[in-house]
Nucleic acid binder design. Structure first.
Lengths: 344, 344
DNA sequence: CCGCTTTTCGTAAGCGCTTCCATTCATTTT
DNA sequence: AAAATGAATGGAAGCGCTTACGAAAAGCGG
């Protein structure tokens, strides 16, 4: 239980602590003889020495740690992963980071929280923030001096790196697809529409597509709530309450869609025969849905990978150059949409 | 960008660094006058001081950090969360930890990996390991001197705390339910069956129930693969290949079930009319499946919460007392099972 | 006003590691 | 042969914080 420190190794190998440090870090400016290296390594193995990374960070000013902030879907709701999208994203982030020898410091976030706590405290080398946050909170982070990458946020500020997708274009693509299938009354269902968020862009894309086709965007055709399946069910009920006006819907998240489909089916509305749906994200389980979701596919794995890459690149290069990465989208056709000739 | 340290605060407040430390940690043995406290706090706020937790850990020997090890489902597969169960569990762990002022150091794990790296390195205060691992790897962790809790593992060793569920009983319950519904030929579908893992217990429960009902456990009725929906589909094909012998199945994970259901439906096998299924886990999305999954419900949130609780309790108390926590299970009836009179 | 207890605070010694700089030899160079 | 070079290592000063320990200030009964 006795922690073995670098000094113990030094003593065992009959060298100084600094020498041990040099061989362990293979410091390029220093040169240690083969023989000594071998002796040190033997001591390390014999004693089972593992360096204390806290101490290392303290003196070397970098921690090989990346802070990751993932939103709790809703304040008060503890389920950070009520949206499987986050799970998949985190998965990819973790995997990529680990490949590079980095670990993750994970924290969920409530809106009102002080993000500094996680980041500044532990001396992370960079921060990945996923989702949309009020600007003030982000500003505090800028003073941190470590690279910050925003995933899926439209905050425009050169202090941050960003990675996202063509939200607007994706939504337009989805909506247009529905229009091409003969639908004219198309609902828009999304999570909360907030400043700098993705949903506002997707809403614009939806509107654009409608307008381009000469269709009106009716207020009663837009549904907005939270990003979880509960809201999908709620939206289904609301759809009924509003009189089943639309024959199709563009939904901005697969989770919502799953709830929506369920809610609709429970009311004996058939998908896609009665209501066609194009969804968004293409999470791991969406081909498993019934019907399998026709959805805008985004490469979640790539998103996470790029996020990590951005942080690491920025952490390495000294001068700050703002970078931005937009991933492409594509529509994958499955079973939740069918042709429709509007009666009117 | 200039980091403000405790000394800066001390200077600003006109006191010594130790005094600042005392007020910040409200060290119980020391007593600082109200007035000084106020002065210090003002300086802290004015300078925007945030303590460097690395330094703190270094000198105080505790980090307010919990290491979390989550398995990559399959080696080579990067998707740690191909099973939504892990996402939900992590969610709960993160939330609970945060409530207690702890952060998470997250790492995925490959089988062959050296777990020490994450734990020992960073001086975590405890480790939560979810899933089943080869014993040798765990042994290395024992020397760590921090509490370790194993989630869903049947490794018997007083050095570890464990938290799990009544796997065997749950499986028995599920199988018996199917039998009560008139099924006699029941498949067992699970992820890999390995030593000390949950599936072996569930298999036993399945066997027990069958035996109790005087039914034979046929080798060709058991399917075992990986825990993801891809395997579910595979199992469906295998089911066909083996001649559609069973009228029901007990599946040990909802993700697998989703794949299985999909695969079966694609082959025009109706659920539950042709094949009834009782699943396991009751993940967030399982009521959304089509049909909604009749499944053994486990309280994933509670599991995560207890895991954290166990670590923290153990970290606080000096002497080691092995603790163990088994959570109850219950069957929730939904739509994937129906009555059946065996033809034979 | 004096010893004595309490309260309040500063000094200093680390925690385990990195890293600049100086030092010691063994080689070369001229 | 003396001077210059370079390779190989150790010394020591921190990184930013905690925490004995001890000293000074303050309260108090007599």
């Amino acid at each position: 239980m006795k922690r073995v420190s670098i000094k113990d190794v030094a003593k065992e190998a009959g060298v100084s602590a600094s020498t041990v440090s040099y061989v362990l870090n293979s410091t390029p400016t220093e040169t240690i003889s083969q023989e000594t290296q071998k002796r040190v390594m033997e001591a390390v193995n014999k004693l089972g020495y593992v360096p204390n990374l806290n101490a290392r960070s303290l003196s070397s000013r970098h921690s090989n740690l990346i802070g990751v902030l993932i939103p709790q879907t809703e304040p008060g709701k503890e389920l950070m992963f009520s949206n499987p999208f986050y799970g998949e994203l985190l998965s990819s982030i973790e995997y990529t980071a680990r490949q590079h020898g980095y670990h993750l410091l994970l924290s969920g976030t409530k809106e009102d929280q002080d993000y500094l706590s996680i980041a500044q405290n532990r001396g992370v080398d960079g921060v990945i923030i996923v989702g949309t946050y009020p600007g003030e909170n982000l500003n505090a982070l800028k003073t941190l001096g470590v690279p910050i990458v925003l995933v899926d946020s439209y905050v425009k500020d050169d202090a941050f790196h960003t990675i996202g997708i063509e939200d607007k274009e994706g939504a337009r693509m989805a909506t247009r697809y529905l229009i091409e299938k003969g639908h004219r009354r198309i609902a828009f269902v999304s999570g909360s529409i907030r400043e700098n968020g993705v949903n506002i862009k997707r809403y614009q894309g939806y509107c654009d597509a409608m307008r381009e086709a000469g269709l009106a965007v009716e207020e009663q055709a837009v549904y907005s709530g939270t990003v979880d399946y509960e809201y999908g069910i709620e939206a289904a009920n609301e759809f009924l309450a509003r009189g089943r006006k639309q024959t199709a819907a563009f939904v901005t998240a697969d989770v919502i869609t799953m709830g929506l489909v369920k809610g609709l089916q429970q009311n004996h509305i058939r998908i896609p025969e009665d209501v066609s749906i194009v969804s968004f994200d293409d999470v791991y389980l969406s081909p498993m849905a019934h019907p399998a979701l026709t959805t805008i596919h985004q490469d979640i794995g790539e998103k996470g990978k790029q996020a990590v890459q951005l942080v690491l690149d920025a952490a390495r290069s000294k001068e700050h150059h703002h970078s931005e990465c937009i991933l492409p989208l594509r529509l994958v056709e499955r079973e939740s949409v069918c042709e429709r000739r509007e009666k009117s």
